[in-house]
Each structure stands twice: as C-alpha cells, then as structure tokens.
Design a protein around this nucleic acid. Structure first.
Length: 200
DNA sequence: TGCCTGATTGCCT
DNA sequence: GGCAATCAGGCAA
C-alpha cells in the first residue's frame, strides 16, 4: 500500500477529479482498515459554479474547502447523510472533489457492519453510502489525506504494475443531485466499473 | 427567530 | 417513478 505524496493534490480541480479515479481511499477503523477503489468523482469549483458550497463565499461550514489542498472536507446533508470530499486548489480557493462511489476492496465485513447491508454492490455506490461504509463523519473533516488514519493510496497499491486509468476509460458527464449548475460536465467515472452510482 | 432547502437514500406503489 | 426521513446552514425579517 503506497500512500500518495502531498504533490498528488496539486493541479486543477478537474485534473485531480480525474486523477483520483483508480486510486484508493483508506480509513483505519476499530475493525481494521477499510479500503475502496475510487470509481466516480465530481468537481466543485469556486466561482462560476453555483452548485458549489464555496460559490457564496467562505463560512464556518465550508472553511476547509478554502484551506490547503489534500485535506478531507466532510459535511452533513439531508439531516442524515455525510459526504466526503478531497480539497483541491490553493489556499483561499474554495474547490473540492466529491467522491461519489467506491469499489469495495478491503474490510468488506466492516463495511457491511457500518452500512447494515450485505450486498457488496450496494456498499459504496453513492456518496452517502460510502461515507457510512467507511465510518466517516464530521470528526474526519479537515484531516490530511497523505498521512494518518484517512489516506489516498496510489492506483498501483494492489495490482502489480497497475496503471492509472487511460483517458478513454473515463466517462465525463453532468453532475447528479444538484439544482443549479446542472449543465456543467464535471462528473467523472470509470466506464468499466459496475460500482458507480449510475451510468450516464 | 423562523422558514426553506439540500452535492441522499431507501421504501412504497 | 414518487416521496418521506430529518436537521444544520443560510438567508429573510
């Protein structure tokens, strides 16, 4: 298992949204390490993106988005769900990448316990689902992702010589579950994956 | 202070 | 496909 370096989080938010595909998200829990392969992401920008939490400026809730890149931005939504994001862009630029789906890799029984669901295909195929499967909540907001109990692992962490996905493997579409900025093509997922929240 | 909405999910028809 | 659950943040007053 090779954790990414801090430099992994430099570049445009859109580039990082694509770079994260094929990488892994690890969380160390009381039931051991829980790991999933990232197969679906969405970019949320600062300006020109009304769907972004950062669009209306910095607040107590979204402050982490405006901090340095490579940290976790976790927020509570709909009174019952958490969503996990990777902060991108330099200080004072409120941008992040929402992780929408994972393919379960390790700690699947722990995921089942946290989710209360058996089917592997239903464990992490949605932003609220994966946060629950990895036992993520507001306590994880602001944590670094290149060291510590919550980390991003390189795409070659599990399969020998596994390379990042080719550009042709990545499908780009509009985002899901928003009411403004619906026309922006800022969602990315791996065409070959059967674990995305939904295709096209 | 009060009202409305939301980067969702799961259950019901 | 429709809709309830459930509550913190954001904005109007």
């Amino acid at each position: 298992m090779a954790t990414v370096k801090k430099e992994f989080f430099t570049g445009t938010t859109i580039a990082i949204a694509q770079r994260l595909l094929g990488a892994y998200l690890l969380h160390s829990t009381k039931f051991g390490n829980v790991i999933g392969r990232i197969v679906e992401t969405e970019a949320y920008l600062h300006q020109r993106d009304p769907a972004s939490h950062a669009f209306r400026g910095k607040t107590k809730r979204n402050a982490v988005m405006f901090g340095p890149p490579g940290h976790a931005y976790v927020y509570f939504i709909y009174g019952m769900h958490y969503c996990f994001n990777v902060v991108t862009a330099p200080d004072e630029h409120g941008e992040a990448v929402l992780i929408r789906s994972l393919e379960p890799v390790r700690g699947i029984d722990a995921m089942r316990y946290f989710r209360g669901v058996e089917s592997v295909g239903q464990l992490c195929n949605g932003p609220g689902k994966l946060a629950k499967a990895l036992n993520l909540n507001l306590a994880d907001n602001g944590k670094p992702l290149w060291r510590g109990p919550l980390r991003i692992l390189r795409p070659d962490s599990f399969l020998n010589f596994a390379k990042p996905p080719r550009r042709s493997e990545i499908q780009r579409t509009t985002r899901i579950g928003i009411s403004s900025g619906v026309d922006l093509p800022l969602r990315f997922y791996l065409k070959s994956s059967s674990h995305v929240s939904r295709t096209l």
